[in-house]
């Protein structure tokens, strides 16, 4: 389980990216799959695809919160959902597009001690 071991104190970054094929999903609430990554020292250590096709938006939100996600990278996201996540300490990088792999590589680079900071939305 990814919830049990990696933690922010140890430099692990838990990232969720709703996906649409190889790209970032355009709409968080209707995403069919959410990819969960644990990134540490510039490398992706764990990758778990979560199928959320049958789940209503509040359930998706609860899943993201329950998994202790620190950063959510997404395309469009409703203001309320964004507010809930941010209130619970999840950093939301919205309006992102393009291949998940590219975004993840940039995020992984940012977790390196000398890496560039993660750009805000």
């Amino acid at each position: 389980m990814i919830c049990s071991t990696p933690s922010p104190e140890h430099g692990f970054l838990r990232v969720a990216i709703p996906s649409f094929g190889p790209n970032v999903a355009p709409h968080f609430s209707t995403a069919q799959e959410i990819l969960i990554y644990v990134v540490h020292k510039g490398r992706v250590r764990i990758r778990i695809p979560l199928s959320v096709a049958q789940e209503p938006p509040p359930q998706k939100l609860r899943k993201v919160l329950a998994l202790g996600i620190q950063v959510l990278v997404c395309g469009g996201i409703e203001e309320r959902t964004r507010a809930v996540l941010e209130r619970r300490g999840v950093r939301v990088l919205s309006n992102r597009t393009g291949p998940v792999a590219d975004i993840l590589n940039r995020m992984a680079a940012a977790t390196e001690p000398t890496g560039p900071p993660i750009a805000n939305s």
Binding site: F20, N23, A25, P26, H27, S29, T30, A31, G98
Partner: peptide, 13 residues
């Protein structure tokens, strides 16, 4: 991509 601009509830389904 149109889905990246429109971000419509139908895009992925």
């Amino acid at each position: 991509a149109c889905y990246d601009v429109l971000r419509c509830s139908l895009c992925q389904t």
